[in-house]
Structure formats: structure tokens, C-alpha cells
Design a binder for these strands. Structure first.
Lengths: 196, 196, 196, 196
DNA sequence: GATGAATGAGCGTTCATTCAT
DNA sequence: GATGAATGAACGCTCATTCAT
């Protein structure tokens, strides 16, 4: 890689990071490209030199987030993990990009198709890991006999609900950091076959 | 009521209905007041004759939705209702305004404070009814001993998740119409103390 | 005059008075016809029933002011008046409508031709009275031999300057009430042939 | 200075000059930013690229005028100047921007605070010069013993009166060009101690 | 490759005026 | 005669995008 190309990649990364911060703070819809250029410390036009359009920039940020999440989940996952381990891995990954991920969820219907594909991609990774363990637990009759897709949706719905109301639940920090343990414990209790 | 006042009310209603349709289709943030005027078949300025500002119009639509939902839930509720009845009442009410309600949930963080109060109001109505029955079922040891707030959040999270992904789950119709029965049945099964 | 006509005249007067107050407070340019209707306690359309257009209403207010001023000056003027008496009469008349008169002066260039005619009319009345006395004093060599038009312009310029800066000179009341005596005394001293 | 910066400055100057012309012709209040853009031959949005808001543009024009006036007065002033010289300097300076200065005076109450500061600044410059000479003349008993502030106000009032009625006094040109000599001569005669 | 000035369509909102009631 | 709902042109301002430098 020559020096020119290196410089180019660095500028691109600078813009991407700036966009990351701005979108995490204000969502994908409201901030202007001008705002991102200022945050990145580059000229307004430079944004469009590296990203064909605002839409492409947004998609790049989202894809970057998707890659980060799936990578982190993969890395943290090991064969012998319990359900609790997997759920924790999921929440740890999201917590690292909590604000941005939350805006991705919220703004999704206003974002281009490709963004939805990314979200689907993220979810299928975690779904895959969950399915492994849950399938096994079902066989062992340790958890209720409900379709995996329903259980998965319940989990995701619960997490997303907390994220969407993060300002309410945890005004000055991370909701997940606060409620992670409780969420995992309660969710598992909900699945368990419980005979007293 | 004289003819003048009648016509005024009709125009107001026309605009409100138009806004209802437009916001249901595109969310609260993107559509312009111009767009709503066109849909209503009135001059652009007329919108502001009936609603002080765009914000006030949005709040009027939201409040209207809130009243419709709570009214419907109240009407359909009866003393002896089972948990299943209550959940169905909830979903029936939302289904009637599915698209608009979904956008309310999604755009909430970008909407004024008052909108959040409306959502809280809606949820406390359904929470109240659920709490009654769930409290009783807990005493009878028929459902798991988990805090009501967690169970409620799980239910709301589940429903909202389906709503937010309605285009995916039910591209050309109502998600709730499709999944209502299944959602209720599965959710109840999840709560039950299950000893086979 | 029949009852119908009487009612009509009363409504017209109500609007005129309301416009008077509003224009005195905010000038002729900024206030909307809506604002005047509200102040008058009549429907917006009623303004246009009595005054063909906003411009005509403004002109009516101005003409009314002109008539009030010239009438008051005429009434207060007597054959044997000194220069001091005449200047005082002038200022007394303006003081009674200080705010409105000031806005007339200030907004004049943005107002229709007819408004300028009214101002000219007011000034020729006071000019006429001043000319009488000043002519006599000049013959008696008691005041400087300067053209009447210059002396008159100096006087008017001085008064208008104080009026235009009334917020600066007298933030919470009438400038003329405050400075009247001083202005008259100084102006006369300026005209006098002064040999010590 | 590189070409880029040069062009930017030129566009800014073009807009400022256009605003200058438009405001001189129609006052500060009525013309739209659209009108100024058209006069300048730039897109409407370009105006806001160079000036944050309409208010800022107006203030820039006014400040530019203030600097031009005070600079010209300073340059033309010399230690040994007579009262006549100083008054002429004052009128020469105003004459160069007669129309714009007149609108500044007229629209002042509707303009932001900063505009008033500019006017005060202009007037204190001329007041300072006048005070020097008039103080001396008073000591020499050559002019009447009236407070400087009254004499200054009389002068400013006189000039402003001519300016405000410039369309009447000099429909197709500069009032000051026409009446300058006469105004100065008459004003001086008014101040003089006159014993024949 | 980077810049940032320029564009022009679009936004929410105001207002004098009209006219059916 | 009085009403006030409706109009639509105009306003100040924002913004993604282009392109000469």
C-alpha cells in the first residue's frame, strides 16, 4: 500500500468514526453531512469524495457496526457455553455500541433496505448460537417446549424494549450495564420448566 | 350546532384524518405539512389555521390515537376477564391503529415530551388490567413468580418487536391480525408453571 | 340617523380606536389586521367591511390623528399668544398622541402618499401660527434675521429628534412631558438677538 | 491570498454591495433576502452561506456604513478646523451614503440593539469634534451660552429632518448636496452672539 | 486527494384578503 | 352588517450535492 492510498484510507476512517459518534448521539436521520464533516475535521465535500452520498455513508456506518458486533460475538463464543453465557455475550457486544445500535433499531424503517439486511445478519449470528443451546436444553426437558423463533423473538423484543427506553431506564449511562444480570436471570427463569 | 361551526369541525377532522393516514404511512418525522394539506385537499395555510404548528398537529394525532386506544381497552374490559382475554383486548385495540401506533413507538424519541406521556398513559391502562389478573394467578401459583414489571415489559417488548418488523413479518397487512393468537398462546405458555 | 347606521358607525369607531392603540404601540408596519381585529373585539373580516384594505385603515387612523392635532392647535390658539405660548400649544397637542405621532414620523416613508399630505397639513397649521409671531418679532429686531422656513425646520427637527429617541430619553413615559419647558426655553434663547 | 479565498471575499462583497443598494433604496425592513440574492446575482441560499441570518446581514451593512462614516470624518478632520469645517466634514461624510444613512435613522427602532450602538458611535465621533470647537467659541463669548448637548441635538435634529424629507426637498438627488452650504451658514448664524 | 463556495429545492410559518354563511 | 374559515403567495432559513480550484 503506497502512502497516497494510506492517507486516503485514514481520511475515510476519520469520517467513518466521526459519523459513528454523531449518529450514536443523534440518530441517523437528523444530523447533516455538514455536521459530520465538522466532527471529522475535514471539508464538507470530502465526505462525498469518500462516500457517494449520505445514504452510502449511513450504510457504511451500519455495516461497520454489524461487523463489529458479529465479530465480537464470534470471538466470545465457545463450544461449551451455557445459555447464560450466550445471552451475556450478546448483551456485552451490544453494550459496546449501545447508543448506535439503539438508533439503528429505531431508525430502521426510515433507512434503506440494506440496513435491514445488516440487522438480520446480526440477529442470525446470535440466533444461531442460541439455537444450539436451547435445542439441547429442550431435549433435556429443562426448558419449555416453545418454538425457538418465539423464544428468540421474546428475548430480542425484551432487549430492544430496554434499549429503546434507555433514557427512561438509565438516563446517564448504559441500560445494559445496569440491567444485564437481571435480564438474563429473569429470562432464563421464564424458560425453565418449573415444578415446585 | 350551526353550519359554520360544523364545517369548521369537518375541515379540522379532514386534516386530522389526512395527517393520520400520512403519519401512519410515513411516520411522524418525515412528512411535510404541505403533504398533509395536499392529502386533506386544503390549502397549506389552512393546516395552520386549525393547528398552531406542526408540533401541535402531531400531538393532536397522537392524543387522538391515545384516546381511541384507551377507550377501546376500557370498553372491551370486563370484571371476569381471563389473562388471555386481556391480552386479546390489548392487541385488538392496537390492531385498529397498527401502522400509526407503530410509528408512535418508533419516532417517540424524536417527538415532544407530551407524546411520551401519551404512550405512558396507554401502557398504564393495559398494565393495570394485566396486573389484576396476573396478581391473582400468582397467588394461585398458576404462573411463575417473576415481578409483574418484568412480565409486562416482556409482553410489551414482544408486541413492539412484531410491530417494528411488521413489513418483514406481514408485508401487506396487519402483523397482529396474523400473529395475535399465536402470540397470546405462546406468551401464556411462557408464564405458566409447567409440570408434566 | 337610524339604528342600523348608528351601530355601523360604532363598530367603525371601535376598530379605529383599536388600530390607534395598536399602531401607537407597535408602529404602522408590523401589526397585522388580525391583531387589530382582536384588540377591537370584532371578527377579522369586519375590519375589511369598514376599511377597504389595510392601507385604507392606516390612512384613516392617520387622518384621524391629523384632525385631532390641528383641531387642538386651533382651539388652543389665541390672537395675542407669545412665541412661547405657540410652541407650548404645539408640544401639548403632540404630547396627547405622542406615541402614534412618533410612529407616523418614523414610518412615513413606507406609508402611502396620502400620509405625507396629512403630515404636511399638520405642519402647515403650526407653521402658520409660528410665522405670525416670528414675523412680528423679526420686525422688532428681537430675534435673528433668519428665514422663517429655516427656523421652523430647526424647531420641527429638534422635536422630531426627541420623539424619535423617546425610548432613550424617557424610557417609561412621555419625552415631551419631561423636556417640554427646556426645549421651548432653549429654542427661544437660540433665536434671540443676544447682546450682553 | 489564493484564488479561492479571493473569490469568496468577492462574493461576500457582491452580496454586501447588493444589500447596500437595496437597503438604501427600500430601507432595512421590507426587502427580502431573496431580493438581495437576485440583485447580487447569486442563489438565495448563498446569502446565508456568507451571513448567518438576515439580521447579521443587516448588521454587517450597518457596521460597514458606520466604519465608512467615522473613517471619513477622522480623515477629513484637522486640528485647526473651524466650526464650519467640522459641520461640512460631517455633511460630506453623510452625503456619500445619504440614502442608506437615512434609512438607518428611520428604521432604527425596528433594528437590533447593535444598530443603535453603531449610530451612537457615529454620533459620538462628530460630537467630539464639535465639542472641541464649540467649547472654545463659548469661552470667547462668540456663541450663545447654551449647553453643548442642546446645540448638538439641534444640529442633528436639523440634519435628520432634511434627510427624512429628502424626497420632498430634493426628489431626484441628494438633499445635502443642495442644502449643505445653507444649513451650515444658517446653523452658525443661529449660534452666534449677534449685536447690531 | 482535498477543498469549500455555490446551488436550488424544500421546509414551517405568517398574513392580507375573499366570500359563503 | 357581521362573521371567521379558507386561501396562496411570500417569508427566512436548511441541506445534500456539485464542481472549479
Amino acid at each position: 500500500m503506497n502512502k497516497r492510498e494510506l492517507q486516503r484510507q485514514q481520511t475515510r476512517a476519520t469520517i467513518l468514526t466521526a459519523a459513528d459518534h454523531i449518529y450514536a448521539a443523534h440518530g441517523f436521520i437528523r444530523p447533516s453531512t455538514q455536521m459530520i464533516a465538522k466532527e471529522a475535521g475535514v471539508a464538507h465535500g470530502t465526505v462525498f469524495l469518500h462516500f457517494q452520498s449520505q445514504e452510502k455513508l449511513i450504510l457504511a456506518v451500519i455495516e461497520h457496526l454489524g461487523m463489529a458486533l458479529t465479530a465480537q460475538i464470534h470471538e466470545a463464543s465457545e463450544p461449551g457455553h451455557s445459555l447464560s453465557d450466550i445471552l451475556r455475550t450478546h448483551l456485552d457486544a451490544i453494550e459496546a455500541s449501545e447508543a448506535l445500535y439503539t438508533h439503528l433499531i429505531l431508525d430502521l424503517p426510515q433507512l434503506p433496505e440494506e440496513a435491514q439486511q445488516t440487522v438480520i445478519g446480526i440477529q442470525s449470528v446470535i440466533a444461531h448460537h442460541m439455537d444450539q443451546v436451547i435445542g439441547q436444553l429442550k431435549k433435556e426437558k429443562k426448558i419449555k417446549d416453545l418454538s425457538f423463533s418465539f423464544l428468540f423473538t421474546t428475548w430480542i423484543g425484551l432487549i430492544h424494549y430496554y434499549l429503546m427506553n434507555r433514557r427512561l431506564f438509565a438516563p446517564h449511562g448504559s441500560v445494559l450495564a445496569f440491567y444485564k444480570d437481571q435480564l438474563i436471570a429473569n429470562f432464563i427463569k421464564l424458560l425453565e420448566v418449573d415444578c415446585k
